[in-house]
Simulated assay, not measured.
Amino acid sequence: MSKLPSHDDCNCFALRQAARYVTQIYERHLGEVGLTAAQFTIVAKLARRPGLTMMELAETMVMERTTLVRALKPLQRDGLVVSESSEHDGRTYQFSLSKAGKETFEQAAIAWRAAQDEFETKFGRSRAKALRAELFNLTAE
C-alpha cells in the first residue's frame, strides 16, 4: 500500500498557503483604496494595455473567463472599468479604465508599493525576485 499523501509533500498546498499569506499583505494595503489584490491586477493590466478584449485579458491574467467576469463586475459597477464594442466585431467588447479607474490605479499603485516593500522586507529582496522569476516561469508559454 502506498504512503498516504501529506500536505508537507504537496506543492499545491504549499503554493496556495503561501498565496493566501501574501494576498493578506497586499489586501491590507490595497483595501485602503477599496481594491482587492485580484482587482488590482486587472486594473494594473488595463492601465498598461487599455482596450483588451475579454479573451485577451483572460489569457494575459491566466484566468478562466467566468472568473474574470466575476472580478470585472464590481469594477464596472463602481465605474472604474468601462467596455465598448470592438470596431471589428460588435459582439466583442474591449475593456479600459475610466477616468476614475485611472485615478484609483494611481492611488492603488502607492498602496501596492507599500505591500511590495513589506513583503520584500520580510522575505528578502533578492529571494523575492528569484521567487517571482520561478513562478512566472510556471506560466510562461
Rank of each mutant, 00 (worst) to 15 (best):
S83Q: 08
A111K: 10
A114L: 07
T41K: 10
D9T: 11
M55S: 12
L15Y: 12
E103Y: 01
S96E: 02
M63H: 05
S85H: 05
Q39W: 00
A44W: 05
K45F: 06
H88V: 06
P74L: 07
A44S: 12
E141I: 14
H7P: 13
D89F: 01
P74R: 08
A71S: 06
G51S: 06
L138G: 06
Q116Y: 15
Q94D: 02
S98F: 00
T139W: 14
V69M: 12
S86W: 00
E32H: 15
R91E: 07
L72W: 00
Q24K: 14
Q39H: 11
G34M: 05
N137C: 10
Q76G: 01
E59K: 15
D78C: 04
K45S: 12
L15E: 10
M54R: 09
G51A: 05
E141W: 13
K122H: 15
L57M: 07
A38I: 04
E106A: 15
G124C: 06
A115C: 02
M63R: 15
A19H: 11
E87C: 02
S2C: 04
A130T: 10
G34R: 03
A128R: 08
K45V: 03
Y93H: 14
E134W: 09
L72D: 00
T67M: 14
E56S: 10
D8I: 05
